[in-house]
Amino acid sequence: MPDAIDPLLLGQRVVAILETGLRVATYKLATLMALIDHCIENLPEHPADQLAVSIPDLAHRVLQLYWRQVRPFEGHDLRQSSGEKERIPRAVRALRAATPASSLSVAMMAAPEVYQTSIDEIGLCLAQQPLYRLQRLPGGDLTDPFLYDDSFLHSNVSRRTLRAHNDAIVLMPGVAAGLARLAGLLKPALEIMWVDDVRRMNKFLTAEVPDIAGHLFGRDRTALAAVRGPFKDAFGARCFYCDTHLPADNPIDHVLPWSLVGIDGLANLVLACARCNTDKRHALPAVDLVDRVLGRDRGVLEQIAGEIRWPTEYQRVAAAARGIYGSQPPGIATWSGYKASVRLDIGFPPRWMDSPS
């Protein structure tokens, strides 16, 4: 087994591959972002371990990334590829057309057969395009794999071949831990590249259209409004962070930041006042805040989930928290409240830090 790759070298090689040559689609960027999210939520027990990554899981994460982006922007469908087929956006649009649901989580439950068809198409596209080409330099077939073994992948790989490899790729030693640790640096860089690519592929996006980044990666706050009333009924109309009384239109906050892990499950959402919501923004919350949010009555959350058809995603939130804090160096600053911070210390880890059985 090869030695585990150093995280700094890993980050340098990822950026070097992306900056070499002209990208003809945003699929490579989406694949890398999906890989990072998977690594965060499935952090190996030992940093040098390998990690098997399900291609259908990657497909779901890629679908989630494009779910917001395929909506028309100023009357236009944004191109995400210089080719004609645009396989991934087309598969995402097919699911959107099958249900009026604004949330992907709700759409999955409302149109499960269409969702599965979209996942199958996106997964095959990932195997034939970005996963096959991600580690290859432009202009040739030479490859020096440093993320995963791609020897069975090619531009015409079949579903049968993928099934023979368990519909998965296997990340090399140290890659999963390295990607999780570099998430805070790599994901903003990938978003910047993504915005640049979309501007290049859509000629109507001039410098006078500055909000394209918000359309691509911002959170649709309107969709979260459905959570506000049930949360107030269940937990009271008070800020989760400072306990101040809340007005009618208070924000809904992602405890684990949306910019780091895009999890909309009820287990990651809380009522917040505007002051705390603005002050926290993209900051990593203190461990005790995560402990509090994961310590809420899961029965209550499940009841709300059933009433509004919105998943709790408790296990996913716990896994993401485990990955985020398990890959951070001790002593970094974390947000603990308005204008307050504490140093990260998990010397006495909470139960959600334990590896899942």
Rank of each mutant, 00 (worst) to 15 (best):
S54F: 08
I55Y: 11
P56S: 03
P56Q: 06
D57G: 05
L58C: 05
A59G: 10
R61N: 02
L63Y: 02
Q64N: 13
Y66N: 00
W67T: 11
Q69P: 06
R71N: 01
F73K: 00
G75T: 11
G75C: 03
H76T: 01
D77V: 04
L78V: 00
R79H: 09
R79T: 01
S81A: 08
K85L: 09
R87K: 05
I88C: 01
A91R: 03
R93Q: 12
R93M: 09
A94Q: 11
A94H: 12
L95Q: 09
L95Y: 11
R96G: 05
A97Q: 15
A97I: 05
S103Q: 10
L104W: 11
L104G: 04
V106K: 13
A107L: 02
M108K: 14
M109E: 14
A110Y: 07
A111V: 08
E113G: 00
E113L: 05
V114A: 05
Y115S: 03
Y115N: 09
T117H: 09
I119H: 02
I119E: 02
I119D: 02
G123Y: 05
L124A: 08
C125I: 00
L126I: 09
Q128F: 05
P130Y: 08
L131A: 03
R133C: 00
Q135Y: 13
Q135W: 13
L137E: 09
L137W: 15
G139F: 14
G139T: 13
G139L: 06
G140Y: 13
L142A: 14
L142T: 15
T143M: 03
T143S: 10
D144H: 15
P145A: 03
P145D: 14
P145Y: 14
F146A: 07
Y148A: 02
Y148S: 01
D150I: 11
F152C: 07
F152P: 14
L153R: 07
L153G: 06
H154S: 14
H154V: 09
S155E: 08
V157N: 09
S158R: 06
R159V: 14
R159L: 07
R159F: 09
R160M: 02
R160C: 01
T161Q: 11
R163E: 10
R163F: 09
R163T: 12
A168D: 03
A168T: 07
I169H: 08
V170S: 02
V170A: 02
P173N: 06
P173L: 04
V175G: 08
V175C: 06
G178F: 11
L179G: 06
R181K: 12
A183N: 02
